[in-house]
Design a protein around this nucleic acid. Structure first.
Lengths: 258, 258
DNA sequence: CGAAAATTTGACGACTCTCAAGTCGAGTGG
DNA sequence: CCACTCGACTTGAGAGTCGTCAAATTTTCG
């Protein structure tokens, strides 16, 4: 297993990409290539729509620090369909699809960098192994989408929130950003309501429920989880779909690119 | 626009792949390559689990005729997270992910063919344009997942069913399999309940609602839609996310592979 | 301090589930 | 041809989850 902080020293902008997943399938040259592709690095403090549905994507974005939501607009509001943590290459979809079917919205302060479409086309042409890893990273998104669909079909709001907390906790852990007893997040209760398809009022009651059950305490930017195993059991959470080191198959077969 | 039936004469097993999407970006040589990759073509009459969660994928499957569901198991049941129509390359995800995080279940009689992992690795190495199209087709799945998430977060069951009917209608239309006034499907009310995260009982009431409103009539394998525009309005359905000829951007940019 | 955003609580109604009990349709054996 | 059987479909009643409307409280930030 690669050490996250050492990787961040060497590759400060892309060191978390696929960390705890297939980063160990990247050569140092490929890591350096990727790091070199990221330009125009900057912080964005306020909630901002980085890409709007229908925009032509002439670049893709690497999320270096902070949280981002993929959203779809709705009459008078938004729905969140997924979220991203540092190390995610957040709109590779836009590269292959040309235009995005959804929006990319920041939630707290974020640090991002941009990779131009030209650079990505070059990867497609000349760096097939890196291209395969990019493909893989978009399929991770699809796997997470499927799990979200299952939770929406299956779980009540308290359990769905628990599932989201468990997923964030695991994903932050993979990129070295979780604490032993929880994590920090800029998400508000209103953001959670957009992720659950519930009203903020109902979210508030569901959070009270989790607090009273001793499963998780959400308090303005900090989620405290005393017993992750109990939280995950409550949410019927299994980390397989994240394809991390716990996962279905952590490894490759001979002859495979990825 | 390519003619579907002519394409099916030339490529009987893969003629519907990406039809009405990026099939016009495929050369005849690529189409022939793909057709030649599909082996072991056969009909499966009864509902069957083609791939189970966790299975190692040593091949991917082309759906030639019939309907397939992607499902996740649940305590005592299934949830459907997406469905597939003829022409879909249904477990390319498994190729890149090695093992699937979900199951692939047939619903009615299906005709399928298999593409070996070895053949796909060869495409990855030697046919970058075809590889990009494969990537694109997996991103279509992700876009459909996102739309499903939105409908689950947002719509009541009658509207969600309407959305599913509208999506099926459009997708069948793209591959030349819809009628003017609806479509045939092997889906049962029980299948619909797994797609909506609702009970079969509630689905039954929701279908009655759609029937009484004159929006759609579901009757044992046949869905009749008299006024698609009204149905789509009721479901807040917009076909953009299918990236078909109605879509956000139907076209390519200079220098792009796909 | 004052304004705006985020959070919290209560009451009531709508949507959906569970449990229970049927009806209808296609295929099978007599 | 008909009774039988099984799965699919349909209906009713009561309970739980969640949304809407309204309002109060706390926190954040200029």
């Amino acid at each position: 297993m690669i050490d996250v902080s050492a990787e961040m020293v060497r590759y400060p902008n892309t060191g978390r990409f696929l960390m705890s997943r297939l980063r160990d399938a990247m050569s140092e040259e490929e890591k350096a290539d990727l790091e070199g592709m990221v330009r125009d690095i900057r912080w964005i403090e306020r909630p901002t729509r980085l890409v709007a549905r229908g925009d032509i994507c002439d670049h893709s974005t690497m999320l270096i620090e902070g949280f981002v939501l993929r959203t779809l607009d709705r009459d008078g509001g938004r729905n969140a369909v997924s979220f991203h943590v540092p190390g995610d290459f957040i709109d590779l979809h836009g590269f292959a699809l040309k235009r995005l079917d959804h929006n990319i919205d920041t939630v707290g302060p974020v640090k991002i960098g941009e990779v131009s479409r030209a650079a990505l086309n070059e990867v497609m042409r000349d760096k097939p192994n890196l291209a395969r890893l990019f493909w893989f990273s978009t399929l991770l998104d699809a796997a997470m989408h499927r799990e979200w669909i299952m939770t929406l079909e299956q779980l009540t709001t308290p359990r769905r929130i628990a599932h989201i907390f468990a997923e964030i906790y695991r994903r932050l852990w993979m990129v070295g950003l979780s604490a032993a007893d929880g994590f920090d997040t800029p998400l508000t209760q209103s953001d959670l309501s957009e992720m659950c398809g519930a009203t903020p009022i109902h979210i508030n009651r569901a959070l009270r429920d989790l607090r009273e059950k001793g499963l998780a305490v959400f308090d303005r930017g900090r989620v405290v989880i005393h017993d992750p195993a109990r939280l995950e059991a409550f949410a019927s959470f299994s980390p397989d779909y994240l394809y991390g080191p716990w996962s279905l198959a952590y490894g490759r077969q001979a002859g495979d690119f990825i």
